[in-house]
Design a protein around this nucleic acid. Structure first.
Lengths: 200, 200
DNA sequence: AACAAAAGTCACCGACCAGTGACAAACTAT
DNA sequence: ATAGTTTGTCACTGGTCGGTGACTTTTGTT
């Protein structure tokens, strides 16, 4: 092994991501990380103090959500007019993006069992993104005065997250088949329909 | 220890429930169960063959969801008229009931990580309950032809489950405080509002 | 009373885990 | 070149886990 502290640290951080994506947080221990990184585990203690600090550093290096910029990018290319259009667009983009992010999914799973450095960081960034989205939406039209838009968003996002996490383990939920694109299509349509009906 | 096979088996099954409710499925191992039951672990293997069979028996003895009868009971006492009224009623009852069921919550958490005898049983009963609910609702009014009621239900139920599971670990989600009744009140109102708007 | 089956106890195995102390090899500054 | 520091390797402890074989005690039948 080349004597390169920086590279070794990088290998360790990379191993955390790989393990998370491939085997989930259950198998994320000091031994497994060292094994995956091809590094002696004592180096984890020497360079990162321990698992908590390692996770903290991993969290800060991470990129777990779409940024608002990436989400809306060039607004002119998006065909959305009303507030409801925009909200639908944001939610469906969010969902599609989440489906691709194995590590983020795994951290969200973890978050349902316990809090730690990683999940806290993720939650913070997520809440910020949600705040930004609401702010963005406010610029797209008046919120209906009789609706609690943040609460409605919370329910819908929670639903999307739950269905996404669950679909990785079980194919069906409430009779809907999530192994087929049609299943997801039905969810997308339902979300759009809910938003259009509710946000007018 | 009294030499009573039936009682010993009962103690073991009870221990499973207690451990699940109090410490979650992570600590649910043969050793922990035997310790909690005050019983030698070899008896678990002798009477139940092993953990999987034990969980299976525990699952079958379980009562994890409100039945449709308990849910609607005497219909005449429920103030709901329209289809949307009934759907709101069912969903809010479901949510309130789930909040009280520690074991069910824990199994739902488990279900997000892996499938096993317990989670499969729970999912099956849940899907049956959902089917029954939809059937019941069909008797209360015509489904809007342009809406996918099962998909909409799936999203809302998924949201309720996610928020319930998460609230046990973290106080806030999307800026809403779930440690206070007001937070849940906002969710209930949002759900009612979504259903009223969408199901007309 | 004798005996077999059932119920419960005890001690152990191998595998994995987090964490640490002692050491060897390589790089650096003098 | 030598001394000191950094990087990496090795071997071990103490703990938990799932699983099992061998044993003792109780119970019920004949």
């Amino acid at each position: 092994m080349a004597r390169d502290k920086a590279e070794t640290k990088a290998r360790i951080l990379t191993a955390v991501g790989k393990l998370l994506a491939e085997s989930g947080f259950k198998s994320l221990g000091v031994n497994a990380i060292a094994r995956e990184a091809g590094v002696d585990k004592v180096l984890i203690y020497r360079y990162f103090e321990g698992l908590p600090t390692l996770l903290q550093q991993f969290a800060q290096a991470g990129d777990y959500w779409l940024s608002m910029e990436a989400l809306v990018g060039d607004e002119s290319t998006i065909e959305a007019e009303t507030l409801a259009d925009w909200m639908t667009y944001l939610l469906l983009e969010f969902m599609g993006d989440l489906q691709e992010r194995s590590i983020t999914q795994e951290i969200l799973r973890w978050e349902l069992l316990e809090g730690n450095e990683l999940t806290d960081e993720l939650a913070q960034v997520r809440d910020q993104l949600a705040l930004d989205s609401l702010k963005f939406l406010k610029g797209k039209g008046e919120f209906p005065v009789d609706q609690d838009v943040p609460a409605i968003s919370a329910v819908l996002i929670a639903g999307v997250v739950y269905l996404t996490l669950r679909a990785k383990i079980h194919n069906t939920f409430m009779g809907i088949d999530f192994s087929a694109p049609q299943g997801w299509q039905r969810i997308e349509t339902a979300l759009a329909s809910i938003i259009q009906s509710t946000m007018q």
